[in-house]
């Protein structure tokens, strides 16, 4: 039995008497303990609705759902101690109260042993650099600080599963980076299972080995990130900085697609090895620098949506 077991899960919403919106349309997947799974899709695809069913907030219209062996909507309160949830646009913290009060109340309602609470709090405050903000009312925190507070709040009780719905939305680059680093460390240290929805593919590339793509309520891809990149099929790009300007480079196995001063772009099939091409370029030209660009998964995903 998997940690999360989803079979033909469906949720419809009745809008204006007649019409039914099928927000999640017969989705199936399994998630094993310790996995970090990215869940992506355009706005309105059904990501949040899926998470709300996994957490027991919404009752599914049909299908089979088990999280840690239980039906979430029937055993919602019991399941709550085993999961952590962060909704990016909303805070779980008490708006008018200092962070410290929110955390202390959570300790009580999750019945976290005091020693464990202190240990976790210290660890998260350090990793997330929140120590100075404990006495600041939540409404005075910046978006990035608040998000770090929310993540701490979701993790104080050592959940086995952490659901993150758009955790990086609206964050600046530095905050995003810090958050990704933290989540990686969390997964490495505690084997916390992570399910993360996002618009930002860099989140996925930084964190997730596995990606699920949903569009119009249906799962259109579920597999390894590398597989998704390969499926874009097309090509990878070798960016070469020569010592000085030259005509287009000619090497076997690659095509030069662009020349801009000393910099040139060569594409080659994504499943081919870069090594022979790199050595051919290095042998024939004075090279200052080299880099390889993976296929842009944004393009791949756009193709997936279009392919439906």
């Amino acid at each position: 039995m998997s940690l999360i077991e989803v079979r033909d899960l469906r949720r419809t919403f009745r809008v204006r008497r007649r019409d039914d919106v099928v927000a999640v349309h017969d989705v199936s997947f399994d998630i094993e303990p310790g996995e970090m799974v990215g869940y992506i899709g355009p706005n309105g695809a059904g990501k949040s609705t899926t998470i709300k069913m996994l957490t027991g907030i919404l009752v599914p219209t049909s299908g089979h759902l088990r999280v840690a062996g239980v039906d979430p909507s029937k055993r919602r309160t019991a399941l709550a101690s085993r999961i952590g949830v962060v909704f990016g646009q909303r805070t779980t913290l008490w708006w008018d109260l200092p962070l410290r009060d929110s955390f202390e109340l959570l300790q009580k309602i999750y019945r976290i042993p005091p020693a464990r609470y202190r240990q976790n709090l210290d660890r998260f405050l350090e990793l997330l650099d929140l120590g100075d903000l404990l006495d600041t009312p939540v409404r005075q925190l910046s978006l990035g600080q608040r998000m770090r507070g929310d993540i701490t709040a979701a993790l104080l009780h050592d959940p086995e599963i952490l659901y993150l719905d758009e955790p990086t939305i609206g964050l600046d680059v530095v905050s995003k980076g810090r958050l990704r680093e933290f989540l990686r460390a969390l997964n490495a240290e505690r084997a916390t299972t992570l399910l993360l929805t996002t618009h930002d593919l860099q989140d996925i590339e930084a964190l997730c080995d596995r990606v699920m793509v949903i569009d119009h309520g249906s799962l259109v891809f579920d597999g390894a990130l590398t597989q998704l990149q390969a499926r874009g099929g097309s090509s990878r790009t070798l960016v070469v900085d020569l010592v000085d300007e030259r005509p287009a480079i000619e090497v076997p196995g690659a095509v030069t697609v662009r020349v801009d001063g000393p910099r040139q772009w060569l594409t080659f099939p994504a499943d081919a090895s870069a090594a022979p091409i790199v050595s051919a370029v290095a042998a024939g030209y004075d090279v200052a620098d080299l880099s390889i660009q993976e296929p842009d998964i944004e393009d791949v995903i756009r193709e997936l949506y279009a392919g439906r």
């Binding site: 957490t55 907030i57 709550a80 949830v85 909303r90 805070t91 999750y110 019945r111």
Partner: peptide, 15 residues
């Protein structure tokens, strides 16, 4: 409307 109920629903205390 504020999403507070969703937050309460994922805590281990009856709603």
């Amino acid at each position: 409307r504020l999403g507070k109920l969703d937050q309460m629903m994922v805590r281990p205390v009856p709603l």
